[in-house]
Design a binder for these strands. Structure first.
Lengths: 147, 147
DNA sequence: TCATTTTAGGATTGGTTTATCTTTTTATTA
DNA sequence: TAATAAAAAGATAAACCAATCCTAAAATGA
């Protein structure tokens, strides 16, 4: 995977939140997604500080998105958890590599970065929701056809 | 950077070895490249086990390539240090992501992997040598023009 | 007000990568 | 043969990420 596991957990959790704006417990998310509970809680708190989630404490509390899912990009979440320069620098870590003095992978890597960055700023949490829904629906269809 | 720092160190060290087949000391490499000495030594030993380098101990000993630089690919070095599956799996770590159920970045990431893998198996240590030589030459030219 | 539920925050553990240190082995050469 | 130089190998330390634990703070409801 290109990102850290924390970022992966964050994206999966965001995609699993209900769309109706109701609050969702960290505990429930961790159970449904099979993600370590205390660790996910920490990650969700980070997303609150990044203004991607908002939370309320106490009974009937939990987490919810601050905006509609289609207004939150994957890139924004990655930046919140890994900093804005996650893909910077030479692929191989050559300190002398630059546009003027490119390493042999420089151009390929540049194209890659552009591609991934573009995809990340295009794709939203909504797209992740749709992906999971499609998966669930097909899994259900397979189970129904086999029974 | 896409790879580990150990892989970056390895590639820089391999590119810095002399082409005439003479042995080179780990100490000299670490000094020239400003890489932590004992750590580089460990990495070089790993490259010996991967049959990319050969070594002799004692005075007049050191490390040298087992083959001409143009016969050692970047991909081979990466595989030796990070295993053959460095780029496997979903970009975001989604367990449900697959060709049938792609995540929104699945296709972009697939193209990226193909591109990087191809470039890695094309590029050789020789290409890295040429890059560094070009850089050195231009730096010298700049210094000469300015003096 | 008090108990309960849940997030917030800080401290702590475990594992992996990065880096260092020490001892041993091997080769050279005097 | 003895001294020295260098890699090999193993143990140790440091830093970072992943994960856990514990105590607070806040909101709800009785």
């Amino acid at each position: 995977m290109l990102f850290t596991t924390a970022t992966g957990y964050a994206l999966r959790a965001l995609a699993a939140l209900p769309e109706d704006g109701s609050y969702c417990l960290a505990k429930d998310l961790s159970a449904r997604l099979d993600i370590p509970g205390p660790y996910l809680a920490k990650i969700l708190q980070g997303l609150v500080q990044a203004s991607i989630l908002e939370s309320v404490r106490g009974p009937k509390g939990g987490f919810r998105l601050t905006r509609p899912a289609h207004r939150i990009t994957v890139g924004e979440v990655v930046a919140a958890l890994e900093g804005p320069e996650a893909l910077e620098g030479c692929v191989m870590g050559f300190p002398t590599c630059s546009g003027d003095h490119p390493c042999p992978l420089h151009d390929a890597w540049g194209a890659v970065k552009a591609q991934v960055t573009s995809s990340m700023t295009q794709a939203t949490i909504r797209d992740l929701q749709l992906m999971d829904l499609r998966h669930l629906k097909e899994a259900k269809a397979r189970a129904g056809g086999r029974s």
